[in-house]
Structure formats: C-alpha cells, structure tokens
Design a protein around this nucleic acid. Structure first.
Lengths: 152, 152
DNA sequence: TTCACTTATATGTATATGCATATATTGAAC
DNA sequence: GTTCAATATATGCATATACATATAAGTGAA
C-alpha cells in the first residue's frame, strides 16, 4: 500500500510535464497581473511583438516561428484583429495566404505595454537571479532540442 | 528602426513567460503522444494520480495542492467523472463539500498508464541529462517561490 | 433565532491550445 | 488545359485554464 503511495508521490513530484505546466501557469499569472492595465494578455502581447517584428507574415510562418499550431494562430490573430491591433489581408501573389501586419493602434499598444513587460521580466529575473535565469533559458532550449531529436 | 528590431528580438528571445509556455507546450505534446493509447490526457492522468493519492479529497483542497483554480478543478474532475474514473459524493459533515475519490476503473486506468508515464519521463530526463533535470526542477521551484514572495 | 460573514462549489464568459477535417488555391504532370 | 498532389487557411470539437460572479451551506455574534 505504502508502495503505491511512494509511486504516486514520485509521479506527483517529478512529472516533467506537470512541473513545467505549473511553472508556466504561475509565471503567466504574474505577467497577466501586470499587463492587465493594458488590456493585453501576455500571449497576445507576445504574438503582437512577433507580428511587428516581421512587418508582413503569414499565418503558417507565424506558427512555425512561434511553435504554435496553425489553427491556434488563426484564432489568436482573429482576437488581435477584433481589437484592431492587426490587419489581415490577402497576399497578392497567392490568394490562399493571409498577410498579417500590425496596425498603428497595435504599435501604440506595443509601446504602452513594453515598459510593463520590462518591469515584470526584471522582477522575475531578479527574483531568481539573472545568472540562474540564463541557465534556465539554456536548459529549456536543450530540453526542446532533445525532444525534437527524439521525435525525429 | 533597427533599434526597434533589437528591442523586439530581445523580448522574443527572453520573455520568461513565453519561453516557459513554449517548453510546457512541447513537453505536453511529447507526453500526449505516448499517453494517447490510454485515452488519458497527461493533465487528466496527473490529476487522477493526485486524487488517488488522497483517497478522498475536496475540490478546493485539490486546487490548493495542484495550484489550480477551483473552477478548473470542478470542470476537469467532471471530465474524469464522465469517463467513470472518479466518484463525486457529498461530504457527510458538510454538504457544501464534494468528496472526490478514484473508482476501480480509474485505478485500472492508472495501472495501465503508469508504465507509459515512466517511459516518456525517462526519455525526457535522459534526453537532457538526469543531473540537468534535477537542476531544472530545483530552478522551477525557486522561480515559483520567488514569484509567490513577490506577490505577498 | 436571525443576520451577516465566510466557505465550497458551480456557471458564464473568454482565451489558449491542438487534432481531425474541410475548403480553397496553387503548381506540376500529363 | 485537366487532373492530382501539395499548401494555406478555416472550422468543428474537445480540453485546459482563470476571473467574475452566483448559489448554497455552514458559523458565529447579537
């Protein structure tokens, strides 16, 4: 009986998936709290930055660089469009393709949100130590690569 | 102009929230793929383990230990109930409280899923190195604590 | 005992996310 | 040029998640 408990405790404590998801939840909520005055969710902010970075980008390209499913991009971009932060137009050469670009309103929003992002990012990095944070990013990258390798 | 690009590249590369969410997505998909034959999502499996570990537990307690909102627990437990993996009964002493417990079917499912969880967990740990994995868990815990501290 | 306060759960609403699949369009082979 | 495979996007469906709020039930003070 106690054996079962030990097994379960082990899973509860060590599950890589659960631990990462939990960390993501907690950090997301911290960002969300700060970003709230802007009306942007942190995921939306991040997607908007990615869009702005590319001036014009298609749904599928955006999915590739953000590592998100195309259908997720389609829907999340729609939300940004509803708020007026992005334009969606048909590509001139290929009418299947949508061209996503940031609007002026979107740019203003980005400017508004940037210092807030810096604030919370600083808090997180300082909270755990900048050196540790660098290592964390490195570790996450390795993790990702090792999984991709495994899938291939 | 290039300045803007640098700013954006910095955010894209270093955002703690985005990086953690991305890692969580990738790892989740790796687990999901393996767990698929069981019909359990990894989140459901993890919640089921938590329920099994406690024999009888309320919605809110489960939320506390899993660091999930009570409303999320309510809904996710409902899904487990639909599959017949858990019982939901009224507490005898306090009729507000629900008592969640695992069913026999749920236990069988757990047994079925456990070795698969071990497999994928091993793959992930070995992929990045067991030592690195321990450090990652430690880091995530520190991150969580530093955020909680900050909120308080 | 009753009323106010607290606690436990549920519901409405919204976003994030992915898989399976449908639809539209392009491009290449014939 | 017509047909077929590949590509780009959208939609249906399901889960995960949280916040605001509603509802129900216990609890303590007046």
């Amino acid at each position: 009986m106690n054996n079962k408990h030990n097994e379960m405790d082990y899973i509860i404590q060590f599950c890589a998936c659960a631990n990462l998801r939990k960390a993501a939840r907690i950090v997301t909520q911290a960002y969300e709290k700060q970003m709230q005055p802007t009306g942007l969710k942190v995921t939306q902010y991040y997607m908007l930055v990615n869009i702005a970075r590319h001036k014009e980008i298609s749904i599928s390209k955006l999915g590739e660089i953000m590592l998100l499913d195309q259908t997720t991009i389609t829907r999340n971009v729609d939300i940004l469009k509803k708020s007026g932060y992005v334009n969606i137009t048909k590509d001139k050469n290929d009418s299947r393709t949508k061209s996503i670009s940031i609007t002026d309103i979107g740019l203003v929003k980005l400017e508004e949100a940037a210092p807030i992002w810096v604030q919370i990012q600083e808090k997180v990095e300082n909270g755990m130590g900048k050196e540790n944070y660098k290592e964390l990013l490195e570790t996450l990258k390795n993790l990702q690569e090792s999984i991709e390798l495994n899938e291939a």
